[in-house]
């Protein structure tokens, strides 16, 4: 019970501090994987991939998966609701008391520093995920094939703006054949 309450608390905190959409929850999920025995780093990399190939908000998909691994069905539902609880409350309060929220300078100044900090945190989580992905390859030749895939997909994404759907399709098929 105490552990379930802790899970809810961690996800409420994540919801409040993750600015910039679903991926902004990554640093907090990574932190949970390290500090608690709810799920492992391998679970985390796998459920990011599952969250990408299933419909719906990526943050909800990841929270449901993480919560399920920690505490079953109730954990999944609880983690998702906890994640959206504080931002929902915040937006409803803003709509009630500050309808011109976009024009508010204080909010703008907070986000001026919060967004670069979130970028840094997501960048570091991505580096850890990269390290974890590279360590999952068993031999040097497979590692090189993995790096080749990374280079290919980076090129396709940044040069040709290929959508996530195609990147995942190419990655999955390439993985089945070569990795």
């Amino acid at each position: 019970m105490a552990d379930f309450a802790l899970l809810l608390f961690e996800f409420m905190k994540t919801g409040l501090f993750a600015v910039g959409g679903g991926y902004a929850t990554l640093p907090y999920l990574y932190d949970m994987a390290v500090r608690f025995d709810w799920f492992t780093l391998d679970d985390l990399t796998n459920f990011i991939a599952v969250s990408e190939v299933t419909p719906g908000p990526i943050g909800i998909n990841m929270a449901t998966f993480a919560g399920y691994l920690a505490h079953g069905v109730i954990g999944g539902v609880g983690a998702s609701l906890a994640l959206v609880f504080l931002p929902t409350l915040l937006i409803l309060l803003l709509l009630r008391f500050m309808p011109d929220v976009t024009e508010n300078t204080l909010m703008r100044r907070v986000f001026y520093g919060l967004i670069p900090a979130a970028c840094g945190l997501i960048f570091v989580s991505a580096l850890y995920l990269l390290k974890n992905a590279l360590l999952s390859f068993e031999t040097t030749s497979v590692t090189l094939l993995g790096i080749a895939l990374l280079a290919l997909l980076l090129f396709l994404s940044f040069r040709f703006r290929l959508s996530p759907f195609w990147l995942l399709l190419i990655g999955g098929v390439y993985g089945l054949i070569f990795l």
């Binding site: 990408e52 990374l150 994404s157 940044f158 098929v173 993985g175 089945l176």
Partner: peptide
């Protein structure tokens, strides 16, 4: 497991692109 190794690389690229836009 092999499919997921490929998917995980694709996910990293998707995150990199989203991060780039945010930055």
């Amino acid at each position: 497991q092999r499919v997921f190794r490929g998917l995980n690389i694709a996910v990293l690229v998707i995150i990199a692109h989203a991060l780039w836009k945010m930055a």
